[in-house]
Design a protein around this nucleic acid. Structure first.
Lengths: 338, 338
DNA sequence: ACTGGCACTCTCCTGGCCTAAGTGCCAATG
DNA sequence: CATTGGCACTTAGGCCAGGAGAGTGCCAGT
């Protein structure tokens, strides 16, 4: 079957190129993989693969290099996710165990993933909109300042200092707090506005303006902190790939400083069971020379947030995918326990 | 006076080299600065400066380049801090105004500074040990979990979820909260342990074990969050200086990922009135090809935290120093207001 | 459908050559 | 004695030619 061999050739090219960083030629190919045919035959296959746009030559007398499209095919049909070795598994466990705090889990995870893949790791905090309220705290800080603290069932804690519209007595603060908690504990963040809108009506005429102020502050806080948070580690790994970023790594670093861009990379509602790979031009501007492997973490099919790795297109996809998947599973597990 | 002219030559060399990125020769010097002498004279001066270790030649037939020692002398005796232009000043104000939240102030500041200097900016959060407690909040989250929230007078909010050693009734939580606040509101964080140690004794036999648990959780939290926080922006600016980092920017990026290193750069108790410049080998390992300009911010002479900029040694010191100083002042001002 | 053979095209390295830049030194000068 | 003009010397970098090596495309043969 000739078609089959062609794919084998493409696979071999990708694997060799990833390993050696150098264009791979027909002769080297037959030597290292037992394809059972001569280099001339391979040359024909390569010509065909080039025709179809899966590989390209940097210049006439060089070997071949995979194109975006070639990597794409490789990932889709020619590779299987490589499970982690058992020492690696143990390392993960050792690294992530013993952290109650969500901040801590996220910080450790992102470092771990960067170290494991030797690339840039990105982790999104559990999405607020998909979480539910565990508790709301209202604290009077002074004459006319309030602290609102919102704790979600995923362990995320958002706090915010707001100017209080009027002076609130300690007693009133206490009653507002109870009302809030009664109304929205267990409620999805997205549904909070609906639940709190008429809380002010439950207070007396006199207190109502002050309470209304607090309610709108809470709503405002919800809107503003709906903004997702993303953290990143291992940017220095980019510098290992001088070659792979033809025009310096500057645009890549710039893109990585934009929270918005990071979010798009990792945050696009991927279910925990699916791995997403985005290659070259499939990425947002500035990252068109990179590849991103990402997935979601969370309970069941419901993704709470995203997690991923960014590197050059010339990347060991099977291993990277294995690492991302494994880490995502551990994180899901840890979050489920707490 | 010949000694004077030599210093003028050194200054000219530093200025030209910073501008052009190229070793500067005797002829170019006389052409661009009116030194009133011939190039041969300058050559003699340069030979002397080289003898003393202030400048060096990359190779025999190239111009001269300042050494660490040369930059040092330049900063110490040959330059004056350059104040910001008035549009720049306005930009700062526009950028920083309108943010109550400390997180927000810090985030904006670091971005601003990176943009202003076009280099890597580093900002330390107000040091916890030098802050005082504004408020403590204790919230029961569930059967045996507590949330402790600590708010400092600098607006910093630290929160932590702790396992409660025993089930606490709502009433008891309330009483613990009041006790805590009575005991440590206004107290310096460093002095908190002394103030809370005998709080448990003020409760009845029966409640004492539970309260002791909470107290020790609070103390533990203090120890753990004493760790300072530092944020960074503008890492992509490093990529602008291919030339200046002979062995790739990798070690620099690596160093910047270490919180500990960043802290050493910026956090060394600099009083707000003094600018520190650390050049080349004066920096910690991995950053020996860079220069760091830093200062403190805070009320009066008491520094609450550090703020600074990191770049290649070939840096426009007067402008960078001006920017760092100006931004630090604005931040001090904003924090004083709140 | 596969293979061996061969001419062809490129890159990359090397060595030689030249130019431009910049230096160090020296003898002359006020 | 500081300064100067002059000059020989060194070196990087650009350019060119030539040769080696790698890899290709194509063709005729099995």
């Amino acid at each position: 079957m000739t078609e089959e061999r062609r794919l084998a050739v493409l696979r071999a090219i990708v694997e060799d190129y990833v390993r050696t960083e150098e264009p791979v030629g027909s002769k080297a190919l037959v030597e290292r993989h037992n394809l059972g045919v001569s280099s001339a035959t391979i040359r024909n296959d390569m010509a065909a693969l080039e025709e179809e746009g899966y590989i390209a030559q940097p210049h006439t007398s060089a070997g071949r290099v995979p194109t975006d499209k070639g990597y794409r095919l490789f990932v889709d049909r020619l590779s299987t996710v490589k499970p982690l070795s058992s020492p690696e598994r143990k390392a993960i466990q050792a690294f992530l165990d013993g952290s109650l705090d969500l901040d801590d889990v996220v910080a450790r995870t992102v470092r771990l993933l960067a170290q494991l893949t030797r690339q840039v790791a990105v982790v999104q905090y559990p999405s607020l909109t998909r979480s539910a309220v565990r508790h709301v705290e209202v604290v009077a800080l002074g004459a006319n300042r309030l602290l609102l603290v919102l704790i979600t069932d995923t362990g995320r804690v958002e706090q915010r200092v707001v100017e209080s519209p009027a002076v609130l007595s300690d007693d009133l603060v206490g009653r507002v707090r109870s009302r809030f908690n009664a109304a929205i504990t267990g409620v999805r963040l997205a549904d909070v506005p609906a639940e709190v809108e008429d809380i002010a009506l439950q207070f007396g005429e006199q207190e109502r303006p002050a309470v209304t102020g607090v309610v709108s502050a809470l709503l405002e806080m919800l809107v503003e902190t709906r903004e997702e948070r993303v953290v990143l580690a291992g940017a220095s790994n980019l510098a290992r790939f001088g070659q792979d970023f033809p025009y310096s790594i500057r645009p890549v670093l710039e893109a990585l400083e934009e929270q918005v861009v990071l979010l798009r990379l990792v945050g696009e509602a991927t279910s925990p069971s699916a791995l997403t790979v985005r290659i070259g031009s499939e990425n947002p501007e500035g990252l068109t020379t990179t590849a991103v492997v990402s997935t979601g973490y969370g309970r069941g099919e419901q993704a709470l947030g995203g997690i991923g790795v960014l590197g050059p297109m010339r990347m060991d996809y099977p291993s990277t995918m294995g690492a991302v998947r494994a880490v995502a599973r551990y994180v899901s597990q840890i979050l489920a326990e707490s």
